[in-house]
């Protein structure tokens, strides 16, 4: 069967759950992803019990904060960078 994931067609040999699709698509940090199937947001707790059907349109919607703040580069890693630069 064929589904669409993030706008691209994906062929699947067998029915898979949302959870399995996250693995197949090698989605990084799945805890940071909201999954929409057709028009519905799939609750995180239903990822394993929701199976995809032929023709489903799946979107992975990522939590996105900012380039700093949560994702602060610590000074220790900056020192590493300086080592590489010098």
């Amino acid at each position: 069967m064929t589904i669409k994931a993030n706008g691209k067609e994906v062929s699947l040999k067998e029915r898979v759950s949302v959870r399995e699709l996250l693995d197949i698509q090698k989605v990084e940090m799945p805890e940071y992803v909201t999954v929409q199937v057709n028009d519905d947001i799939i609750p995180r707790e239903s990822f394993e019990t929701t199976f995809l059907e032929d023709g489903d349109v799946v979107e992975f919607l990522y939590f996105m904060g900012g380039g700093s703040g949560v994702w602060v580069l610590q000074m220790s890693s900056l020192k590493g960078i300086q080592g590489i630069l010098s």
């Binding site: 940090m29 805890e31 940071y32 909201t34 929409q36 947001i41 919607l61 939590f63 994702w71 890693s77």
Partner: peptide, 16 residues
């Protein structure tokens, strides 16, 4: 769309 903030145990690594 994003029902709640990411779970506290979903701590990102700095490679992000």
């Amino acid at each position: 769309i994003f029902r709640n903030p990411p779970p506290p145990d979903a701590v990102p690594t700095c490679k992000q």
